[in-house]
Design a protein around this nucleic acid. Structure first.
Lengths: 132, 132
DNA sequence: TGCCATACTTACCCGTTGGAAAGTGAAGGA
DNA sequence: TCCTTCACTTTCCAACGGGTAAGTATGGCA
């Protein structure tokens, strides 16, 4: 048997742990598959309507699309413009904050593009080492 | 009623969709809470043993720690060194690939730190607008 | 003969995630 | 009168995530 199965966080005397926790929470929110993709799509295409945004995101359900986009609106990443017409017309675009976030993630996207093959190779090698 | 509830991906004639899908898959894998945190911890502290890594990650369970770290090893982000002694001694450190990934995410972390308060304000404003 | 440490693995279990599908509302067209 | 459009909302349900707890292996030490 064993005493601890989940490691409790260390206490750093010099670091504000409230800010730390918030940053981690924000990272958790922001580092979400659909949030990332929608960020990308809106950065590339500018203002988009709901359905078009869903098409460009690819494979997202209506439920997740509204949910993600609403969350991003709350966090201040997108502006949602409702045109009071029928049938409804709602448009989404990035705020300045959302744009800077997209830019911050840009490096990660390019990293991913540049290193996909290296990752694939690493996986193959690992599987060969451990499968047999 | 309605025909489509999940939007199918668009076909871009000029873009290799296989690479696209892979990149998205890699992003999904990499943009995981624990992966991100472990990347951070290993970048800051260098080589670490299992238990110490867990303590520094903060709040992670043994199961998730092994799982995450094994996945990162498979993807080629960390090197796992087993010292054949008893009790076991296993050390983890970033590979060059892992280090470049950590650097790529560095921008996002600093962005998060810099913008936590703006996000909080945006949330408050949103909630005030929509709660009442 | 136990007990300890370390790095796991396995089984169980519950809460969350997220897709499928159907419902809503309001106006204009057939 | 009913259908259509668009942007949702809601309900149902299956899959997954991830925590807790317990088990494993091995040699040294008391």
């Amino acid at each position: 048997m064993q005493k601890a199965k989940t490691y409790s966080p260390e206490v750093y005397p010099a670091v504000d742990s409230r800010v730390e926790a918030l940053v981690v929470e924000v990272m958790g929110r922001v580092a979400d598959k659909w949030t990332l993709i929608i960020l990308e799509v809106l950065e590339k295409h500018g203002e988009l309507r709901f359905t078009r945004l869903g098409e460009l995101a690819g494979g997202i359900s209506q439920k997740m699309l509204t949910q993600t986009v609403r969350q991003m609106e709350r966090d201040g990443f997108v502006i949602r413009t409702v045109h009071p017409v029928i049938p409804p017309r709602v448009e989404y675009k990035l705020t300045d904050l959302g744009l800077t976030l997209a830019e911050a993630f840009c490096g990660v996207w390019t990293w991913a593009e540049a290193n996909v093959t290296r990752i694939e190779k690493a996986r193959d090698a690992f599987d060969r080492r451990n499968k047999i």
